[in-house]
Design a protein around this nucleic acid. Structure first.
Lengths: 205, 205
DNA sequence: ACGGTAACTGTCCGAACGGTCAGCTCTGAC
DNA sequence: GTCAGAGCTGACCGTTCGGACAGTTACCGT
């Protein structure tokens, strides 16, 4: 019985993620999660101070990566900012598919979170758009940037039956086209399977 | 006092839309809506059989347009299907910005609706993607299609400070680029302010 | 042997909320 | 005048759910 303790927290997180994705945050009660892992609701609340804390802990990993990206982007501009942002965002999206779906499907609830609140999300989004737009103030560039990010986001949230490689390539191609940064429209074989070397993103990312 | 009756229903709808968009569907109680228009909760439930009915009625107009589009698309294919789908979808998105935001932010809740349920939404989405992809089965085309739609959707949901014309042009340009259907990359002035004539969509749309 | 503490649970509670119902009021038809 | 019915409301109800709390058990250091 020595091992029962250390595992519960993670098992609770796993169950919560599964259920939140399937039924939505509000659509899942604490009792549901507890029942799913086979422990008491009180036990669940021993591990997490409240329901929101579960959601926060689930989304923290993604949040941190996005925060880090945001910081890294602050010292870039122009096409470099744009490309870095797109590549990294695609990477994050693919690495956290289920969390992205959770976020996508429950935007209204996540917005009310104390740690990942509206102002935080909106701020980050704004700066991401700014980077992807290559710091351009032209509405058309900013809209295109938002479309690219939205497209990646929405596509990442839809659990498609494609493998990560296909998805990564298609997402990159699509986003760059959206931004009219298609990497040599004539040379479509270049960014194929091999990833463009910058895909091993600069930082820890 | 003769006029109080006929207006309430619409005023309730307006308040509900406002509050749902601001605080989310679940985050808005029937009492909130009633208080906002200054009538009783019972009165609210006299006009709508239940809370879901409000959301349904709010989203019905968009739903109907999308259904109609879906039907119209069924007899098209190739680039024609793709272009029609994109143009119409952009039009619908712009015409129902607030409803789109409502939908975007509350996907989990909308999915549980009896009339606009998961299978309906997923089915429509699937067929829309199919059309936008020009009936291609190539994963890359389908992903690009999903990205284009997702980009339009997400961008429409973000209430941007741009006028409809700018938005329409940028959305179309972005989506067509995403799909690699850029309308004569050399001739960017063509689909500018004038709308491409097909924008006055065939049907009642 | 024993005190402390981490892990876990059964039970209870209060609040919020969706929804019901009996009834009130006003208006318009006959 | 009166009857019907539409519009509206206050009061009430049942349930659900998040959360609090007082334990209990098992382990561990001393």
């Amino acid at each position: 019985m020595a091992r029962t303790s250390s595992g519960l927290h993670e098992r609770l997180l796993a169950s919560a993620l599964r259920l939140f994705v399937a039924r939505g945050f509000r659509g899942t009660s604490l009792a549901d999660i507890a029942a799913d892992v086979g422990c008491s609701k009180a036990s669940l609340l021993y591990h997490f101070s409240n329901k929101e804390a579960i959601l926060t802990e689930l989304l923290m990993p993604v949040g941190n990566e996005v925060f880090a990206l945001d910081e890294r982007l602050s010292e870039l501009d122009g096409e470099e900012a744009s490309l870095t942002a797109v590549h990294s965002f695609v990477g994050i999206t693919l690495r956290f598919r289920r969390e992205i779906k959770l976020l996508f499907d429950n935007l209204a609830d996540v917005s009310c979170l104390p740690d990942l609140g509206v102002e935080t999300i909106d701020g980050i989004r704004e700066r991401l758009v700014d980077a992807v737009a290559g710091r351009s103030a032209d509405p058309r560039d900013r809209i295109a940037a938002l479309m690219a990010l939205g497209g990646i986001f929405a596509t990442g949230a839809a659990d498609l039956p494609y493998d990560d490689l296909t998805l990564r390539e298609a997402l990159l191609t699509g986003a760059l086209r959206t931004l009219n940064l298609a990497p040599g429209d004539p040379a479509p074989g270049d960014l194929g399977p091999g990833r463009t070397a910058r895909d091993a993103e600069p930082g820890k990312n």
